[in-house]
């Protein structure tokens, strides 16, 4: 039992003495009524600054607003019809999936691998741990710029290396689909440290007895990993994967810094496309419609992922 400032024996007398009102109040307190008020500030903030503007923004998807005029008209489902016929949208959705799902996949696989490596008792592992996590705290905008200087055609760091081997320089970011994978790679590079740290914690929390028990049953390296490590890492995997997926699907900064979504529309994600439609193409109504599509997709994917992973969690 934890010691704390308890109500003394006299207090219960006071409660009885002061009559029914006091008891009622206490009962209210005990039934947790007032407790629910504790999330009121959060609720107020979210409603005011997020939910209310969100619904207002949704209404815009049914208009033809250009983003800055004072007047606009309602056009019903016109923007949504346009979305179905827009050839670019399908490609952008594909890109968004690559950014979200592949980023998460790579980040978590490499994160786990790095965590396993750093868990080993080798010298310099602390230094490595720090180094891998460092890019995660740097602004994505800056990281995008740094990597842009690598992939530049003229004077880019990578092309310089190719020149050493007399290989012709390549314009890396000029091909949309290649650019998407490069951006996914940069995003992975930046945030793999986060996954690594989470997995490291998970690994270090698995009691060695489990491994010993498995060894006694004749399990070796891979089997130990499969049957002991993996299941007990599920909570860590859930946190890491869900957080990464939402972030990856919403990916914005890195894309803007490296290709701005180009060439044309080929490396846009849904969020950069929305930005482009709103501010550059002056089609705020259509941008809002795309925004709703993005919200829907992220919703479905994250709920699905969460349910999938939660069901696999094992109690320690």
């Amino acid at each position: 039992m934890i010691l704390y400032n308890t109500a003394g024996p006299d207090d219960s007398k006071k409660i009885h003495q002061n009559g029914k009102i006091r008891i009622a109040v206490n009962r209210c307190k005990n039934s947790g009524f007032f407790v629910n008020f504790m999330y009121l500030p959060a609720l107020i903030l979210l409603c005011t600054f997020l939910i209310y503007p969100f619904f207002k923004g949704m209404v815009l998807s049914f208009s033809n607003w250009n983003g800055y005029n004072q007047e606009y008209q309602m056009v019903g489902l016109q923007n949504y019809k346009r979305m179905f016929h827009d050839a670019n949208v399908l490609n952008v959705i594909k890109n968004t999936f690559i950014y979200g799902i592949c980023s998460t996949l790579f980040q978590n696989i490499f994160g786990l691998m790095f965590a396993l490596l750093v868990d080993q008792k080798i010298r310099g592992r602390n230094f490595l741990k720090i180094l891998i996590y460092l890019p995660a705290i740097i602004s994505a905008l800056i990281m995008g710029y740094v990597w842009y200087y690598f992939f530049q055609y003229n004077g880019g760091a990578i092309n310089d290396v190719l020149a050493l081997f007399s290989i012709a320089p390549v314009d890396w970011l000029s091909d949309g689909s290649r650019a998407v994978w490069i951006i996914t790679g940069v995003n992975t590079f930046q945030f793999v440290g986060v996954a690594m740290i989470i997995y490291l914690a998970g690994l270090q929390n698995i009691p060695t007895q489990y491994y010993e028990a498995a060894e006694m049953d004749g399990a070796t390296g891979l089997k130990k990993f499969q049957h002991v490590t993996l299941p007990l890492l599920m909570p860590a995997i859930t946190v890491s994967v869900v957080d990464n997926i939402i972030g990856g699907l919403k990916l914005f900064d890195v894309i803007m810094a490296m290709t701005k979504g180009g060439p044309g529309y080929s490396s846009h994600s849904l969020s950069t496309m929305m930005y482009n439609l709103y501010f550059v193409r002056q089609n705020a109504g259509y941008a809002a419609a795309i925004g709703n599509l993005m919200f829907l997709i992220i919703c479905i994917i994250s709920v699905f992922t969460l349910k999938c992973l939660k069901s696999k969690e094992v109690e320690m």
């Binding site: 979210l46 207002k56 939402i246 929305m274 992220i298």
Partner: peptide
């Protein structure tokens, strides 16, 4: 609310 992108609510 984690899913809501900042841009959709920017102007309101």
């Amino acid at each position: 609310c984690m899913i809501v992108p900042a841009l959709t609510i920017l102007v309101p």
